[in-house]
Design a protein around this nucleic acid. Structure first.
Lengths: 362, 362
DNA sequence: CTGAAAGCGCTTACAG
DNA sequence: CTGAAAGCGCTTACAG
């Protein structure tokens, strides 16, 4: 009275196994395995019998058990700063597609930029014996991965390189991109150009700032220290920074933003400053005018940049391409490729839309 | 010469197992298991010996093997339309956080709105014996999940209900939200209000369109069929729809957009129409003016809505809250809760920002 | 406190 | 073509 229904014996416990199917069909377990895996050499009538039992019992192979025996798990793990951030979710989606093409499933986890959490999530993936790891690192020391790599786990870093270990990495051309963005502003006639971006302790922040300085130097332009603001972008800091840059002894006429968040917060603040200027003191009015006419180029493209007023000129990265390449590197390694650690550097693309083509205010 | 190094014996194969640790430490395998799992009742010196061996061999427990024995996998699967879409990635991130709190890992997969792919990804998760599934359904028939549910897999649907099976579901108040959005436009004096959204064959598209009709009926307003456009939003269709609505015998003065993409495409098109009007025929100019003054309310909030010109009034859902609640339902079920299928309906929130408060053009 | 045996659900390697 | 045995790396249940 329990073999003819697809419901399991008791509350949730005990799904049918190959053993159950074998008993039901009156064959050996191995025969069931052959049918399930489409292995050749099973008599047609026997195969039919097994398939019928599978159907009746509602059997579905337990891949976890299979993979334990096989040694592979057909899964990879992706660790990034925040799955909820459009940059990373685009990257994740692309990685997912490559994984699927290779019959792999994708675990995703967020580190919130905390090294400890990166490590915790990564090791949890390793405990499940993922075949590969794609890591957007938060930490600076990845030696904890050495045993994993030694055991054959394929590891690829994205957006920032690994710390203290050799590993494949997919990067954007941070320095070159920033240089091009700032050079673009210079070519529009700007000489007083500010920089607002991440702290130099962050890999990308460091390189983009360098790009800014290089471009200024190439243009023969000095940098006033009141023009530079480097910290994790949040609204209060950005506001203070902008007011400082726009009202100092040598107010900037253009600004380069080091990342996505910095750009968006800047846009919000500029609009606020411009609005606050109406019907106020002449100092406010001057600040408002400066805010309203500031030229702007941002690192990272973002949705709706083209619908801003004016549309925002950006130096675009391609997160999907980064995710795709990283995943492809994983599967190339898993397929046996043994060359030295690869370093892929993706070109950035300057997209002029309006905000970066404004002339300097007289 | 192979026991003192943390490198495995041969190329990638063979990580140290509990058996290896036991041999190395000269204890029984079970003792190693006790130490690894912090079970009580191990003599301190023995525990130390085992820990030393673990360290030296670089042992890390294989959770897959453990979970095979335990019957749980401490993982859940999330299937949605597109992990790369901000709406879904916000949902995914929230689900990830809840999973982490419960010691679970998260598999993510995209269906691209294809029923077959939804099924394929979902069943792949089931083959790994995930403990639970969070599904944003693409298909309309989920009976294929019956064996899984019978076997104890917790299943929760999000954004749209399950098809042909009973299951927990977390929904937004689609109809009420749309009704409120349209009523808001009516309260601003609009009488000719268009609707641009998904086809009625889509669950949310159907309900939002109903909300639109209800609000119009409540306001005693008739709907001209030239005001309604229902299809998957893409730029060409949206453009044709808008030109039609703005130039017909009874041009609309306001528009309600049924979702995120519709809103964004509309904004893009309106700007284009307004720009094209300058220095053209008088017909173009009239169209441009109508486009430039159109009042707009959109279903779904989106980043930078506040920076549009004018800022966009929306009926906001809360994807993170949806993901959080869905994951919580999963773990409540896994904890033994056996009540009937829950249906959670989340309120939407009207956020006036400017575009929805414009008066009708005379 | 410690351990030898059986088993989770499959596949691998080997007989018939 | 079919199957009985061993084993993947752990935990469970039971002895000492």
């Amino acid at each position: 009275m329990s073999e003819m229904t697809s419901q399991p014996d008791s509350a949730g416990r005990g799904r049918p196994t190959m053993k159950d199917v074998a008993a039901h069909a009156g064959v050996a377990l191995k025969t069931v395995s052959r049918v399930v895996n489409n292995e050749p050499g099973v008599a047609p009538d026997m195969a039919t019998r097994v398939r019928t039992s599978i159907e009746e019992l509602g059997f579905r192979r337990n891949d976890s058990a299979r993979l334990l025996r096989t040694g592979q798990t057909s899964s990879i793990g992706l660790i990034m700063e925040d799955l909820g951030d459009p940059f990373y979710s685009a990257l994740a989606r692309a990685a997912e597609d490559v994984a699927r093409q290779h019959g792999s499933l994708l675990f995703t986890g967020s580190s919130d930029e905390q090294p400890e959490r990166e490590r915790e999530v990564t090791l949890a993936f390793c405990a499940r014996r993922v075949d590969g790891l794609i890591i957007v690192p938060a930490g600076a020391d990845h030696r904890y991965l050495l045993p994993e790599i030694g055991a054959g786990v394929a590891v690829v870093f994205v957006d920032r390189p690994a710390g203290l270990i050799e590993a494949d990495v997919v990067l954007a051309d941070n320095q070159g991109g920033a240089r091009a963005g700032v050079a673009h502003l210079i070519s529009q006639g700007h000489a007083r150009i500010g920089y607002l971006g991440d702290s130099e302790s962050i890999y990308t922040g460091n390189l983009r700032y360098r790009g800014y300085r290089e471009a200024m130097a190439s243009g023969g332009l000095a940098i006033d220290r009141s023009w530079v603001w480097q910290a994790a972008p949040e609204i209060t800091g950005v506001r203070r920074a902008l007011v400082g840059m726009l009202t100092g002894r040598a107010p900037v006429t253009a600004l380069f933003c080091g990342n996505n968040r910095a750009t968006v917060l800047t846009l919000r603040t500029l609009r606020e400053l411009a609005a606050a200027a109406r019907g106020r003191t002449s100092a406010d009015a001057a600040l408002g005018e400066a805010a309203a006419s500031l030229a702007l180029v941002g690192f990272d493209d973002f949705e709706l940049a083209d619908l801003m007023t004016p549309p925002v000129t950006v130096v675009a990265q391609n997160p999907a391409e980064m995710g795709r390449l990283a995943a492809q590197l994983i599967f190339r390694r898993l397929a046996g490729e043994t060359g030295p650690a690869a370093q892929i550097r993706l070109r950035t693309r300057l997209i002029p839309r309006g905000s970066g083509e404004r002339p300097p205010r007289p």
